[in-house]
Amino acid sequence: MSASFAFPPSFRRSVIAIVATVVVFAFVPLMAGSFALHVLTISFYFVILASSWNLLAGYTGQFSLAHHAFAAIGAYTSGLLGYHYGIPAWIGIPAGVVMAGLFGLILGRLVLRMRAIYLAIATWAFAETVHIYLTADYQFTRGELGLSVKPLYGNVNPLPYYFTFLALAALVLIGLRALIDSPLGYFMRAIKDDELRAKSLGIDTTRVKIAVFSISSAIAGLAGAFYGHFIVLLSPQMIDFSEMAKIVIMVVIGGFGTFLGPVIGAAPVQMVMTYLQKYGEWNLAIFALVVIVLMRFSMEGLASLFAPVWRRIWTRHAI
């Protein structure tokens, strides 16, 4: 970063808040059973997916419907490398990140000039293509039979996974906050508000949009790759549209285009959905309805309730 830019105080405050939250969650295993830990671990995974999708859709205005596919690309890259070539996770996971980032770069280029609705359709078509490929090329991907992936840790204890995903989510959130508070973050928000004006100021909007698409996809790939080594059996269901819908629901309920939104939206939605699973697809329909109502009235979701509290904390103890 050039000398001309310093992070605003909001960056430090956010890092403090993230670290404090991690400390609180570090004590949860003392009280929670292994099923609750499992649900929380998956929630942390979705915090990463929802936050990185929010970077793309909420901050930059590129409403992609392929985010779950990038998670799957990360998961399958590491899974397939391990399954076919015996490559360990510590190489497989970075490879998954790179693969998702590259696909994101290419897709980001292709959809660059598309208006919102066309971008949504094109990215959805991309996700479906990946879905079909994973199903059709079953000799390589194992298709619906499922690809078994080596677990990250030798035993079935949920605790190490809980802490792995907690730490991963915290690191990703700090990274995202740094990005949002950096010049690139200003340019992203500028593009979402008024792309023509952004260009007229000298911002290379093409580069910014492609960069954000690629970064956000790489983060999804990172989450997906770890996730594969956690659930240990991958199937093309990972690219079921309901997975994407879930990400959108989490962000909208939490607060679209706010930093806090996906963080506080992910866990409640994941929990409620887990408990409503027995009603099948209907629970998604109920959530979809909630999302439509929320989007109609306010895009700021639950995060808008926290905003005044957040301001009060920091005005009293100026940091």
Partner: peptide, 25 residues
């Protein structure tokens, strides 16, 4: 034309950052 969802300060900052290599530091 302005960035309507950004504050006054952020609008100015964005303009600065877009051309920050042009001398001012």
């Amino acid at each position: 034309r302005l960035f309507g969802n950004m504050t006054v300060r952020e609008n100015l900052m964005t303009s600065f950052l877009a051309r920050r290599d042009k001398g001012e530091s």
